[in-house]
Design a protein around this nucleic acid. Sequence first.
DNA 1: CGGCTTTTCGACATGCAGTGACGAATTTAC
DNA 2: GTAAATTCGTCACTGCATGTCGAAAAGCCG
Lengths: 202, 202
Amino acid sequence: MTGTRPARRGRPRGTSTRELELIALHLFTEQGFHETTIEQIAAAAGVSTRTFFRYFDAKASVLWQTFDSEVEAIRAALADAPDDLPVMEAIRHAVLAANHYRAADVPELRMRMNLVATVPEIAASAGVRYDAWERAISEFVGRRVGQPADSLFPHVVGRATLAACRAAYERWAARADADLTVYLDAALRALAGGFARPTAEP
Amino acid sequence: MTGTRPARRGRPRGTSTRELELIALHLFTEQGFHETTIEQIAAAAGVSTRTFFRYFDAKASVLWQTFDSEVEAIRAALADAPDDLPVMEAIRHAVLAANHYRAADVPELRMRMNLVATVPEIAASAGVRYDAWERAISEFVGRRVGQPADSLFPHVVGRATLAACRAAYERWAARADADLTVYLDAALRALAGGFARPTAEP
DNA sequence: CGGCTTTTCGACATGCAGTGACGAATTTAC
DNA sequence: GTAAATTCGTCACTGCATGTCGAAAAGCCG
């Protein structure tokens, strides 16, 4: 297990990435992204601004902590997918499995998604994270179809899958009348159907 | 026509967005994005750094001039699409029509795409421009299927279509062994087919 | 020509993001 | 108690981006 015995030598940390993430999340939603300075975030955590940049490389990076773990969940689910399951089916199941959130985590998730959808600068910072997400998909597709992951077809599938999920995320964040997975399922089914028939809104 | 008679009153402009774009494009590719300061770009154009920000709101915005006109071309092509043409067919034709470049413009296009694909900060600045691109698609889809453009299905189609085209752009920029439209056509056909069968690389 | 208006530009000042350098603080190990 | 390890705070600095204000450079008009 982790966290049972840090017991390292040296001066103990004055804060944590998790604490900074929560402080920033609330400050951003309350008073805006641009209106919040790093000095404020650091001060609320009881550290200096220089220390903030020892935890994160940029102001917007503070919101992308949990996203990375989602990528790992998708990767693991895809690795376990049975070989006879069609590619797009396997992807849909993996994405849905990685997006089951506990009810207690939903408000925080919604705050973060609203910021991503609202603040251009935060949305801009997403590009690098999205690349990892897409690569998890395209590497799986590449294995299945026997092509390099960076060739056209796997690449297109990876990008298009994330795009569909992003649309579902945003639509869910804007309305919040149903479970997130319902939106994801509808978006991924429409994608796998080649958008031949329009689907009704969940 | 435009450009025949400027003849406006007041001090004439010291440069143009086009000139700044070309200067920045070459400096970025030669010595890198971070290594190029706005002071250098402005000095090469014979203006002050303050003037640069009167032409563009940010350093990375200097590369997104031509992209906006592409969006308009797609919008116009979609407006002229016959009603009996299937939605995804109409989209594919519109995108291909908007991406026919003259041979003389290809090197510049390639430089720009390589920068977008390489420099994270430039890719990050793309988000806002992509939104307009996607909206051109989703508004067309919304009209066709009788749903609001911002409901789930049109939104997903818009995002996924751009994602497929971005993958084609990047793949073309990385290889450059065929026409850009060949990559776009392959990507959009795969998308419209729901990725049911893998397609070979062009 | 000479004054008026319009438009753009340059110079200056300012705030914030992000980075490097270096010494101080705090803990464990011996 | 001393040494080693790790984190922190302070200082200094570059660059991006913005606001302000007066000067420059053109056309318009009497």
